[in-house]
Amino acid sequence: MKDMFRGTLLKVLLLLILLLPLGAFLHYNLPGYDVVRITSTDIRRVDRDGNAANNEVPGATRDVYVIFAEDPESGAARVYYNEDTGWGFPWYFKFDSANVHQRAGAIAREPDNRALVTHYGWRIPMLSWFPNAVSVQRVEPGYTPIPWFNIVFFALLAGVIGWIWWSVARWRRRRAASL
């Protein structure tokens, strides 16, 4: 009985060791949706490490669009970087950061400046990490986003995992029957 408990505990721990990094990876890279009030926008010059730049070396700095917002209910501050992803990972194929920045600035100047910000990434103040805004859309007060992409993605992922589980179980039954 004690050995069976240890075996089960070991399997659960191994499963957690595998699933936690996968969950963190998906949480970081899949789109998140925030309904916020956009307060202002800015353009910052940063160096390659993302720090404020005073570097005079050509090509060592870049401009980053920044969107400042707050949660409509709690008033908590939200800051988003707005950078192109280009052809790189994660594959958002975003090439219009200037357009997103202009749209955010236009929404900030309106009396009812609520917007849906689609983003990926995490805000980690100690590391100066900001989520990257993929799109900004004007929304009405009380709007609640439905994450259709995430729903479809996780349904497909569950289907693939279920198919693999079923295939392995079928293979094990065939193997056991042939022995």
Rank of each mutant, 00 (worst) to 15 (best):
I17S: 06
R174L: 12
I151K: 00
L16P: 02
T118C: 00
L179G: 14
L127M: 13
P131Y: 00
G88E: 09
R172A: 10
W87R: 10
T39H: 02
P147T: 01
F153S: 03
R48I: 13
W122G: 09
I146A: 06
A169R: 12
R62H: 06
T118Y: 02
Y81V: 10
A77Y: 12
A155N: 04
V136M: 01
D34F: 08
R62M: 09
N82E: 08
Y65M: 01
G50L: 11
D34M: 10
A104T: 02
V36T: 10
D71S: 02
E70H: 01
R78G: 08
S178N: 11
S128K: 13
P72Y: 03
A104D: 01
D42P: 10
E140D: 13
V12S: 12
P111Q: 09
E83L: 10
L157H: 07
A177T: 13
V100Y: 00
S97D: 07
L14Q: 04
F93M: 12
D63Y: 12
I67C: 01
L16H: 06
P141R: 00
G142M: 05
P125H: 05
A108L: 09
G86T: 10
T85D: 01
N82L: 05
D42L: 09
G105C: 04
R138G: 04
S74V: 03
V35E: 03
G86H: 11
S74E: 02
V36D: 04
L116F: 07
F68Y: 14
Y92L: 07
Q137Y: 01
A76K: 15
R6Y: 11
D112H: 02
M1H: 13
S167L: 07
E83K: 07
W122V: 15
A52Q: 14
T41K: 08
T39M: 00
V64C: 01
I43R: 06
D49I: 12
N150G: 02
V100T: 13
A60T: 02
L16T: 10
P125L: 04
L15R: 02
L127G: 08
G75A: 07
F25P: 05
I17W: 02
K11R: 11
A155R: 04
N132E: 07
V168Q: 00
R45S: 14
Y120H: 13
V134C: 03
P58A: 01
A158W: 06
M126K: 15
W165D: 12
Y33T: 10
L10I: 15
H27L: 06
G59F: 07
L156A: 07
E56K: 13
W148P: 06
